[in-house]
């Protein structure tokens, strides 16, 4: 089944305008090809193309309303795209609910507002999906969850409720919860934007550690320091388009597009 899928995507993909696709196709874990999305009559995402290799860390930035959040939400189909293709781990996101389920199992997501389940303890939050989706035995799931909680450095909070934790702690729990599904890809949707300044670092530290472990990461963030240290590539979006795509060093020192230059001026200029 997986084979036929790959064949099809390659057959149609070769006609699509994706230059980087051929050389990467063996290791590309996410491929987005000429993807378009509308909200009603509003064209939010315009002809996006992106190919992400296994283990690659990508930071997406851009002004608010540029469509960057919508873009990464399309990758686990929290939003539906209307044209083009999104292929995650050799599975194309179509209307087929099995594909959606499979992709969501492989892709972890961390939200701006954490979205922890307030009625469940930290541990239950982490075990929920392994138990109910992966059908892991409870004991095993709990042990795995404790491991991840240790990794995000809050094993001692396991039996508290999310409401009892600080924002930074909650976001770390959210990361652990996503990791508990043992995903191949992690999506971060502005993970530090809702945090108080003194808590940003603890979350970024966890993310940096995660990046060091070889996880494939797509991260929408305004933390340019994080982008500089961790990212393999920085993508700049504006008005629903990918304006510029470059390694961080190039991106920050020598931006090509005027829109990028203007954006960088605005956020770095204080």
């Amino acid at each position: 089944m997986g084979n036929t899928m790959t064949d099809q995507t390659q057959a149609t993909g070769s006609t699509g305008p994706v230059p980087s696709q051929k050389d990467d196709s063996s290791s590309a874990i996410i491929r987005v090809e000429s993807m378009n999305k509308w909200y009603g009559d509003f064209h939010v995402l315009k002809d996006l193309n992106l190919s992400v290799r296994q283990g690659e860390r990508i930071v997406i930035c851009g002004p608010s309303g540029s469509g960057k959040s919508t873009f990464i939400r399309c990758i686990n189909r929290l939003e539906e795209h209307q044209q083009g293709k999104i292929i995650v781990d050799n599975i194309e996101l179509t209307d087929d609910i099995r594909h959606i389920d499979t992709v969501r199992r492989e892709v972890g997501m961390v939200f701006q507002h954490f979205n922890l389940f307030p009625h469940l303890t930290v541990l239950e939050n982490c075990c929920l999906s392994p138990i109910w989706v992966r059908k892991t035995p409870r004991k095993e799931a709990e042990e795995a969850a404790m491991e991840y909680l240790e990794r995000v450095k809050i094993p001692d909070q396991a039996n508290k409720f999310p409401g009892q934790l600080s924002g930074g702690q909650q976001q770390r729990v959210a990361i652990a919860r996503a990791l508990c599904m043992k995903p191949k890809i992690m999506l971060f949707d502005e993970p530090t934007s809702a945090l108080d300044p003194e808590m940003i670092k603890e979350v970024l530290d966890v993310m940096i550690e995660l990046a060091g472990s070889g996880m494939t990461m797509l991260c929408v963030t305004h933390e340019m320091g994080f982008a500089k240290t961790v990212a393999d590539r920085v993508i700049f979006m504006d008005g629903g388009e990918i304006v510029e795509e470059a390694p961080p060093h190039e991106f920050f020192t020598n931006p090509q597009e005027p829109r990028t230059q203007k954006f960088l001026e605005q956020i770095l200029d204080h």
Binding site: T12, G40, E80, Q83, T94, D95, D96, H99
Partner: peptide, 20 residues
Amino acid sequence: MKKQTVDSRPAGPKPWYDPR
């Protein structure tokens, strides 16, 4: 939602897996 086009989905899913 309105801009639903079929052409981008060459192989549609089996009917019972299509949420619509």
